[in-house]
Design a protein around this nucleic acid. Structure first.
Lengths: 221, 221
DNA sequence: GCCGTTCAGTGACGATGTCACCAAGTGGAA
DNA sequence: TTCCACTTGGTGACATCGTCACTGAACGGC
């Protein structure tokens, strides 16, 4: 039983008894890349705390269009799961493992017990909750008021994780921004013409990140 | 001390001791129409449960543009307040009393106590929480993928509360949808030409709601 | 009535979304 | 290997939406 709790700063102040119960009654699970962890209409059975990997949460509309809402990274819990667990409701969006994922699975009953017994656990859960709501507000503001070229530049910088390269099709980038593929194609074409990126099928190389950053910094100007 | 608890279906199953503590330690307050109840950067002191009236929660961008996120009606609690209370963070949006409001104010300390002691109270709070997240997802999907004429028709139907009339400027309707005033002016002009509405300064009369509903029903077609 | 302010209407144009279609790249099957 | 189906990306035409500049009407205080 590894002491994974140290990986979650918010859980370091957990009361010893609660901490013990948490490690005893939860399991560490592995989920392969690409797995649909939850989807609309499904009922959540466990709260997941991510140890390794990344989960993408997205909304899928009737017309088949997709938009990425947020990502859950290592050290975080999934807010949507929390909401559904607490309200005893089904999921309204979809969660997909973007990488291989290792996570702590806390069964619903144990979660209820921890929430009621531990102030520290509640703080951990609901701090994440609040941040996520703020994130969603930001997503709404961006979609409503921000130009796509600026948002695309920001997203490229955001998705580049030191690799200076992004593995994604134009269609996937469109889903990130909630726009159409053609728009992404044209904007990336423009970025390439300016020498900021180089494209090949399925990958985008960031050549001049500073250039992208200048555009991204224009923000709500 | 009136027994306002009966106005909240979710609180009817409250444990007697908890119920007693709640009525003793909270106060009923009155807030006049137009009051800014909370705003960005403010720290929440009380959780409000609305007895009467309506609160509008909206995001205000740097450029001064506004977008309505959701409304809190009688019988509901404000999710954003809950989030901020639990996470000990400041507000990221703005709440305005759209009507005169009567509400139960639960101090932060009492809220923490109730959340930890009562399963029923937690369910009450977090069911609202989950619904609101789902609402926000819907707002995102609408802004990203839905045509404005359809959204405007839906909003007109939504805001008409039996009065067959809406008191709002074009600017305010634009904020409801996160679009520009000019767009609303043109769409409402088109609606009027079709005989669905009649306009005068500051008010919109819904003449043919069935017509609006036909348009609104097109949805993600 | 006068006047400043708010509200609504409009044309022009740029930005974005939609549709239709084509070309190139990719990988599996014959 | 060649062939073929599928995925990915590129592009023009057009519709919708957002922005800008400006106008005039309606309203409220004086």
């Amino acid at each position: 039983m590894p002491d994974w709790i140290t990986q979650f700063p918010g859980l370091s102040r957990l009361e010893p008894a609660v901490r013990d119960a948490l490690t005893r009654k939860s399991a560490v699970i592995a989920v392969p890349k690409g797995t649909v962890i939850f989807g609309p209409g499904k009922s959540p059975e466990n709260l997941l705390l991510l140890l390794e990997g990344r989960v993408r949460v997205q909304q899928v509309s009737e017309g088949g269009r997709e938009i990425v809402l947020y990502r859950v990274e290592a050290g975080q819990s999934c807010v949507l799961t929390t909401a559904c667990l607490l309200a005893h409701e089904d999921y309204s969006a979809q969660g997909i493992a973007e990488t291989d994922v290792r996570a702590v699975a806390i069964p619903r009953a144990v979660f209820d017990e921890l929430v009621s017994q531990s102030v520290a656990f509640r703080n951990f859960i609901f701090t994440a909750y609040s941040r996520r709501i703020t994130d969603l507000f930001q997503v709404i503001e961006d979609i409503a008021f921000q130009r796509v070229d600026i948002r695309l530049a920001q997203k490229l910088i955001d998705l580049e994780r030191g690799a200076r390269q992004i593995k994604a099709t134009h269609q996937q980038m469109a889903a990130e921004l909630g726009t159409a593929r053609e728009v992404v194609s044209r904007q990336l074409g423009e970025f390439q013409r300016r020498g900021w990126i180089r494209q090949s099928r399925g990958t985008i190389d960031l050549v001049d990140i500073a250039g992208l950053e200048r555009l991204a910094a224009l923000d709500a100007g």
